[in-house]
């Protein structure tokens, strides 16, 4: 399995689609997501011997993809990002509004978030990490993670409301 080309190709075909979906949430665009996916799968094949069959194989691959995506961003990019959120309006956003958007639309909106916000948002909301775990993963303070998530929510709401307002 470790260096069996056919098996590796089968494995790629099976998981690449789903993992590209994961990568797209972290990347700014499809090209970047594909780069992450490519690096991620190379790591998967390189480190196949480290999989201990103790958990889900898909989960293991997903974690590698997330780690690869995180490493593709600089730490400083999370710390130094300054977005003028003060200018955004504090409009409330009904939860159901998210249901009306397709996955592609949601991905597009998330992709437009600044790197730091997007990563923290993905890790917290989609992957289910706690702020403490995110802080450890990204090398930032727990409070930073918390504030970035708050800002990410606000920005996301603004963007969604903007879409609906323009549609109306």
């Amino acid at each position: 399995m470790r260096e069996d080309r056919q098996s590796q190709q089968l494995l790629f075909q099976r998981y690449a689609g789903k993992m590209l979906g994961v990568c797209m949430r972290y990347a700014r665009n499809r090209q970047e997501a594909e780069d992450i996916l490519q690096d991620g799968f190379i790591k998967v094949f390189d480190n196949m011997h480290r999989f201990r069959f103790e958990g889900s194989f898909e989960g293991w691959i997903r974690r590698i993809m997330i780690n690869t995506a995180l490493k593709s961003f600089k730490k400083k990019s999370f710390k130094n990002e300054q977005i003028g959120l003060e200018n955004y309006q504090e409009d409330s956003c009904e939860p159901d509004i998210y249901s009306q958007l397709s996955e592609q639309e949601l991905l597009k909106i998330i992709g437009e978030l600044p790197d730091g916000y997007r990563v923290v948002f993905n890790l917290y909301v989609i992957e289910g990490y706690s702020h403490k775990e995110i802080g450890e993963l990204l090398g930032i303070q727990e409070s930073t993670s918390r504030s970035q998530l708050t800002k990410a929510r606000k920005l996301l709401q603004q963007k969604i409301l903007g879409i609906f307002k323009s549609a109306i």
Binding site: F12, G17, K18, L20, G21, M24, L107
Partner: peptide, 8 residues
């Protein structure tokens, strides 16, 4: 989005 999959 958690299990969102795109074309391979």
């Amino acid at each position: 989005l958690q299990d969102y999959s795109v074309e391979t």
